[in-house]
């Protein structure tokens, strides 16, 4: 019986992980309160919520601040979940929707819709833009997977190099559309290249948020399958995983969730890379906890970056992707130095 008692490790691990998740949840709540309050107009959040405060502050809160914070949170969470899922699928900690071209593909899809069918993009923007962005993301993800599969495994170098090529191709497309477009469209296009939550309004936020959430939920439920895939694809099959179905689901859902995010907020760089890694450092690589933890931390980080973006140089705004890139790029370098091919 003594031997059974000695296997206490999993119980302790489990406790640590739940504690870690709780901490991340608390962090998210804190950041959320701060993000709702801070801005060009400082808002006493509790007063507004209690209905004590009305007028300008209340309008700003409900019509501008709240949808924006919600959008930042959901985009951050879904980017992080998509990043963690793709890293699991490719068995590679350097896979990031931005780095491997999924985001650019989405941007290209959205941009082509704006330039080629401005009327459609204007009238049905809430749906047409996300759908074309999703199509772009999906094309890139599927191509990347098919390409990498031909070599039988996903080496770090292969994925990143293919990602560079796909990013370049998408940028060619975007550049071409920029060249073709008029001044008004050009301003909108620049927005996609820099990323911002500034255009958030309930009419555009809600459909996109619904799409993102619908695609993120199946990803959150793939934890065990993604864990088993870390043993290798044949081994995952031996353990009862329908590998093809899992792959299809992860590719489809991450492309949809990233594409819908890109359609409303442009390219937000590095969140999908940095957040899963930080979460792994905090609570370990087990996907059943990692996916949920990444969602919490991703939301918190995106809200924080957005708050900085709109408060650092009030009343002007800094594109949020400048901030995430400024933080993420050095982190990426550090990560490369750690994950040297063995």
């Amino acid at each position: 019986m003594n031997s059974v008692d000695e296997l206490k490790l999993p119980a302790r691990l489990y406790g640590l992980r739940m504690g870690g998740l709780a901490l991340l949840g608390a962090l998210l709540a804190g950041v959320c309160a701060m993000a709702l309050g801070a801005g060009a107009i400082r808002i006493p959040v509790l007063d507004v919520l209690a209905g004590v405060n009305s007028g300008l502050e209340s309008t700003v809160f409900f019509q501008i601040r709240a949808p924006r914070v919600l959008l930042a949170g959901v985009v951050g969470a879904t980017l992080a979940v998509a990043g963690a899922s793709l890293q699991g699928l490719f068995r590679n900690p350097l896979a990031d929707p931005g780095l491997i071209g999924v985001s650019s593909g989405g941007a290209l899809g959205a941009v082509s819709m704006i330039v080629m069918a401005p009327a459609l993009a204007g009238a049905g923007a809430a749906y047409a833009l996300p759908l074309s962005a999703i199509a772009g993301s999906l094309a890139v993800t599927a191509f990347l997977y098919a390409f990498a599969s031909r070599f039988g495994h996903f080496s770090i170098v292969t994925i990143l190099l293919v990602g560079i090529a796909l990013n370049a191709l998408a940028n060619v497309g975007i550049g071409l559309f920029q060249y073709l477009s008029d001044d008004a469209a050009l301003r909108t296009l620049t927005f996609w290249m820099m990323g911002s939550f500034g255009s958030a309004a309930w009419t555009t936020v809600l459909p996109a948020v619904a799409l993102m959430a619908m695609a993120a939920v199946p990803l959150l439920r793939q934890g065990r399958e993604l864990d088993l895939l870390q043993l290798g694809e044949p081994e995952a099959f031996h353990l009862g995983v329908d590998v093809r179905r899992t792959k299809r689901r992860v590719i489809l859902c991450s492309a949809v969730t990233v594409g819908a995010g890109v359609a409303v907020s442009g390219i937000i760089a590095f969140i999908g890379l940095v957040v899963p890694h930080l979460t792994r450092l905090a609570i370990g690589p087990n996907h059943r906890y990692l996916l949920a933890g990444s969602a919490l931390l991703g939301a918190a980080l995106a809200m924080l970056a957005d708050t900085v973006a709109r408060t650092l140089a009030t009343p002007a705004e800094i594109p949020v992707s400048l901030i995430t890139s400024a933080l993420g790029a050095p982190f990426f370098l550090w990560l490369i130095s750690r994950v040297r091919p063995k």
Binding site: Q87, Q230, G232, E235, H238, G240, G284
Partner: peptide
């Protein structure tokens, strides 16, 4: 047989590569 049904009645040990992430043996 579905992959799950197969998994219940046979297991396989392959010649093995590394794992991408730092799982603990317990988790493996």
């Amino acid at each position: 047989l579905s992959p799950q049904q197969q998994a219940r009645c046979r297991s396989v040990m392959t010649q093995h590569p590394r794992m991408a992430f730092d799982y603990i043996v317990e988790e493996v």
